[in-house]
Design a protein around this nucleic acid. Structure first.
Lengths: 214, 214
DNA sequence: ACCTGAACACCGTTCAAGT
DNA sequence: ACCTGAACACCGTTCAAGT
């Protein structure tokens, strides 16, 4: 029955909408202690959709056809994982603040993902005490980026008031018109203006991470 | 009277606690349209506490005693701004998701900060169409970092379950014991384990930004 | 112009009572 | 073991009525 509850990764996460199970609100409390526990279950099923498989084959030095040198392969794994991570959580923006401050105790899929990523970083040669800082730095950026995707495309539209911020307004115009010119959305975000900042920050973090390798 | 309301940057932002004004909840609706408008006012007063003054003197090439070369000075301005930004919003974590997705229309202090930062980046020589992406990338990281500060220090404590994530658990141990050894908190965060990831990501973003200068 | 009191629809949670 | 119905304390919002 919990499995059905977990399927309710859909929006709002309100009990009223969890009544798609054709059940009273009070009945839910026979299966979960409180809403926090429900959100933990949802968090874990959402986290399980993040693709961290790129970190798995990082130790295979024997294969002669392994793509590129180790630095390149780690960069690729970090990039794919980050894109997937942002993609998944941009669909559940209301979960972001919760996940960012929630202990992972009792969330098996979440722990599994951390284990995969940590293992990949370790076999790539990252010093052990740097693994967690790297992961946390990436996650901080990814959480913020996921929220940014759900910002309205007009976050910076201060059109009627432009006069008191001319330089910034000009920079917004220069950026938005540059984006409008090349129409394709590289990482497929909903907010077209969110992709370039994401790529810029992601490249910076990846570059700094591979620079930590011996 | 609104000024007094703005003073209520204190926690909870609930109307019930806004009754420190010795007034009924309903009376508030004579001054604001709804809670969203109130939060906009709070957002702006919080944003006004972010220190962006480091970007102001960036154009002074005449002064012979200007500290270091332009790249160094921009890096310093970005660092001070980021530390202040994270510091301020780590005190109001519940505002972060709101601010990250709220248009800045009608928020004068917020617009003022963006103008200062944008001007600093422009005079430093950053191409105009890169200004907004850089700011957004920084903010994404800063929002995530601010939430991370408010995560319990034990976000990664999966003690009883360690067995199924041995590599990650070892990495957590290596990191936490390394932090515990050097007791000082560099940026003064509440969560001592949040400072190193923040510094790591911040250095990465700063490095990538100055690399964009011609 | 500004405030109060009462009401409304919502939310998370509890609990006695049923089967 | 699992569900219901009713109740509780809370929240944001509205509105008639006061001064």
């Amino acid at each position: 029955l919990q499995i059905v509850v977990e399927r309710g990764q859909s929006m709002l996460t309100m009990k009223a909408l969890a009544d798609r199970l054709g059940v009273t609100v009070a009945a839910l409390y026979n299966h979960i202690a409180n809403k926090a526990e429900l959100l933990l279950l949802v968090q874990d099923v959402v986290m399980s959709r993040v693709d961290a498989t790129g970190f798995s084959g990082l130790g295979d030095r024997s294969a002669a056809d392994c793509a590129g040198e180790p630095r390149e392969r780690l960069a690729e794994a970090l990039r794919n994982w980050s894109v997937s991570y942002r993609q998944v959580f941009s669909e559940f923006p209301e979960l972001v603040p919760l996940i960012a401050t929630t202990p992972i105790s009792g969330a098996p899929a979440t722990r599994g993902m951390y284990e995969t990523v940590a293992t990949g970083l370790a076999v790539a040669g990252l010093p052990e005490e740097r693994i967690v800082p790297v992961i946390v730095a990436f996650e901080s950026f990814l959480f913020g980026s996921a929220m940014d995707v759900n910002a309205p495309a007009s976050v910076f539209s201060s059109r009627p008031y432009e006069s008191d911020a001319p330089v910034f307004a000009a920079a917004v115009d220069a950026f938005t018109s540059a984006v409008d010119k090349r129409c394709s959305a590289p990482t497929g975000g909903a907010n077209p203006y969110a992709d370039e900042p994401f790529g810029l920050g992601l490249d910076a973090l990846i570059g700094a991470t591979v620079a930590l390798l011996p």
